[in-house]
Computed example of a mutant assay.
Amino acid sequence: MTEAAIVASDSLWREIRSEAERAAAADPVFGKVLAGTILVHDDFAAALADLTGRRLGGSSADRARFAAFSRNAFGRAPELVEAAGHDLRAIALRDPAIAALLPPLLHFKGYVALQAWRVSNWHWRHGHVDAALLFQNEASNVLQVSIHPAASIGSSVYLDHATGIVIGANVVIGDEVTILQNVSIGRHGELPTRSPRIGRGVYIGGGATILGDISIGDFAKIGAGSVVTGDVPDGCTAVGNPARLTNCPEPASAA
């Protein structure tokens, strides 16, 4: 992690702690929860590892195991913590119902699922296949979000509502992407490399399906319930089943 990233992470943690302290002072009962989940920790990475363990683990042993897997990944790859901070700030920026950092950190399962994926992807890339698939399985069972450890996802990503999201192996998702509930993104056919590539700033509406060896261009929008099996150029909107293109910056062929 660069010096600038460390400063940003420290600033983020100070904001979270400040929010937690104010919330604890306002509600002593909730304050006890915050004391055990936020205020007891020294930094954002420790709190995030603990929260990931709490959300995925059904027993105390499982919670400890998932937290340990997360701490190991965060300690060895600080860039995961940096990306987690960007993801958290993205929620506060894009969700009109949220203006703070603490509520999505504590309560948004899409955020937890995405950080669980970041840990699973790190383990996958380092040959810890069983640990990676364990994270995927638990996130699918507990959070209803299944992201294959072999997928690639950028930062400042927001999984909004985050029920029924399925992202397959070898899918590539860029920075600043927003994905709503019941979205499926995966291959079309037998070859695993035939998976979608989602560009920067793309918005994917609820119930959309994106399949095959295709590219979704930067800042494109996929309408709710659309089925997309062809390329979508930069800035275009794809709607319908089968999807057709509209609102393109310049003439483009059908999706």
Rank of each mutant, 00 (worst) to 15 (best):
Q136M: 14
G207Q: 03
V232P: 00
V166Q: 04
T163M: 14
G154V: 12
A220N: 03
A224D: 01
A238C: 12
S226D: 04
C236Y: 02
A208L: 06
L159A: 11
L134D: 15
G205M: 06
A208Y: 05
G230L: 06
S156T: 12
G235D: 08
S184H: 12
Y203A: 03
H128Q: 14
N141A: 15
H161W: 10
R197W: 01
A151I: 11
D213T: 02
V129K: 13
G127C: 01
Q144M: 08
D218V: 04
L211K: 05
S140E: 06
L159T: 07
H188A: 13
V202R: 01
V239S: 00
A150T: 12
T229Q: 09
P149N: 10
V232D: 00
Y203H: 13
V202P: 00
G154Y: 09
T229A: 04
P242Y: 09
A238F: 12
S152L: 11
I173Q: 08
V183R: 10
I204A: 04
L211T: 02
D175I: 14
G223S: 05
G189C: 07
A208C: 04
A132M: 09
T178L: 15
E138D: 01
A220L: 03
T237Q: 10
S156M: 09
Y203Q: 07
K221G: 04
V171E: 06
V145S: 07
P242E: 08
G206Y: 00
T229C: 09
K221W: 00
Y158P: 00
L211A: 06
G217L: 08
A162P: 00
